[in-house]
Simulated scan of single mutants.
Amino acid sequence: MESSEMTVGDVIDLLSACDRTAPLRLAMNPFFPMAHRPAQIVECRDETGRPVVYLAEGRDTDSQLGHLLPEVAVALTWQVPVQAPPRRPRRTARGQ
């Protein structure tokens, strides 16, 4: 049975194509998308003895950076693209 989990090797491969000077962010919670600043990487073993690596958010109060950019939520398919409603012509003070 093949695992659907992303591996450390997958992450390294994907990150190797990115700008090395770009800050790393975590996108969390598809139903209330927020951006977080990672602070630690911890390697351990799970209940079955397999190695597992955790990327953790920092403890600082500024680790949660705020709402996730809408274009990121769309790219992650957490939200659908939304277009602004069409603009109507403005009315003048005389109702014309």
Rank of each mutant, 00 (worst) to 15 (best):
P51I: 01
Q64H: 01
I41K: 02
E71H: 13
E43W: 00
R37K: 15
V82E: 15
D46G: 00
A75F: 01
E47P: 00
R91L: 14
S3V: 07
V72G: 03
A39T: 01
P89F: 09
P86K: 07
A73G: 08
Q64G: 03
Q40W: 04
D13Y: 03
P89T: 13
S4A: 08
R50H: 04
C18E: 14
R45A: 14
G66W: 08
L76Y: 06
A84Q: 11
R91C: 00
A27H: 09
G66S: 10
R90G: 12
L65H: 06
V42R: 15
S63N: 10
R25K: 11
M1S: 15
R20W: 00
G66H: 09
R20V: 01
D19L: 12
P81M: 10
Q64S: 08
M6W: 03
R25M: 10
P51R: 14
E71W: 04
L55F: 05
E43Q: 11
A75H: 02
L55E: 00
T48E: 15
L76A: 10
L14S: 07
V72T: 15
D62A: 06
G58R: 12
S3G: 13
L26H: 07
I12K: 14
R91M: 09
T21D: 12
F31E: 13
D13F: 03
R91I: 00
A93C: 02
E43S: 12
E2I: 12
P38W: 07
R91D: 00
V53R: 01
T48H: 13
T48V: 10
S3A: 14
V74Q: 12
